[in-house]
Amino acid sequence: MYGNLFSRDLRAELDRLQRDMQQRYELSPGIRGLGRGGFPTINVGSTLQAVELYAFAPGVDPASFDVQVEKGVLTIAGERKPAALGTEEKTMLHIDERFAGRFRRVVNLPDDIDAAAIEASYRDGVLHLHIPRLQAVQPRRIEIQ
């Protein structure tokens, strides 16, 4: 009856399919969202001593980053300005794929990290957070006398 009014369009179907896949493969989608596909994209790795987080945020003024940790929740916020265009009147935009505007991403951190000792650096458009684990929790080798 609603066939024409709510016709399935291919794009919406693909979006649904993508979300469906994410639901299936993301083991525990957090309450704060699926955690994928936002800006900046994030890769995380860990060693015995620290958690290393890489946020791919090209073209951001380093001063605009706002990184905070509160109760084990890390927030990376900031703003990326749209490309500065000349004052030329007849400028045409042919392709528009890059993100512009304010962004915020939230990541749950493990319990054993030392929030006071986080180091952040920004190089080649990647914000790297070095998040050390608490000394007490690090595995220690016990010498046998």
């Binding site: 994209t41 994030i42 890769n43 995380v44 790795g45 860990s46 015995l48």
Partner: peptide, 11 residues
């Protein structure tokens, strides 16, 4: 760092 295990990768 050496010995890092990736745990989450969007890129």
């Amino acid at each position: 760092p050496a010995g890092m295990e990736p745990s989450h990768a969007e890129v």
